[in-house]
């Protein structure tokens, strides 16, 4: 089974880039998986995911409810979204998958979409906040375990 682990985020918006950092940390640890990162959304995700059998996505999440560093599985049925997979540009992540399938494109099954709570503050920074850096190993561990 061809598996893709995809980290999403903006590398210059501090904690917003947590998905990118976690994905890189998973490189070599997630067995039989290709790890990729993307700063793009919408149809660009279709290009990246096409041809894989299964995809795990990791992105920042800002619900203003959870604790920074908290990891949640995001479902298509509702609940909180993440920073980049649910946009005002007309198509969210699950719709992209549906669109691809509707058009007969070989789209992967969704292993999981992980949202990592980052709290309120998003500011220009090429590094994560100290608070999130401290929790990085734990976040990677949770996701690795969940991915099986």
């Amino acid at each position: 089974m061809k598996t893709l682990v995809l980290g999403m985020g903006n590398p210059i918006l501090g904690d917003d880039g947590i998905g990118l950092v976690v994905a890189r940390a998973l490189e070599g640890k997630a067995a039989d998986s290709v790890v990729a990162t993307s700063t793009m959304i919408g149809l660009d995700l279709m290009d990246i995911m096409t041809g894989y059998d299964r995809v795990f996505v990791i992105d920042a999440m800002c619900t203003r409810e959870g604790e920074p560093g908290e990891v949640r599985r995001i479902s298509p049925e509702g609940g909180p979204g993440t920073m980049h997979l649910f946009t005002s540009h007309g198509l969210h992540f699950f719709e992209i998958i549906d669109l691809g399938r509707s058009c007969g494109i070989d789209m992967p099954e969704i292993g999981a979409v992980y949202g990592i709570e980052i709290g309120d503050a998003v500011c220009f920074d090429e590094e994560l906040s100290d608070g999130l850096k401290d929790k990085l190993d734990g976040i990677v561990e949770i996701i690795l375990r969940d991915m099986g």
Partner: peptide
Amino acid sequence: THSMPGTM
């Protein structure tokens, strides 16, 4: 800006 709360 990315202040979206989740879905649209």
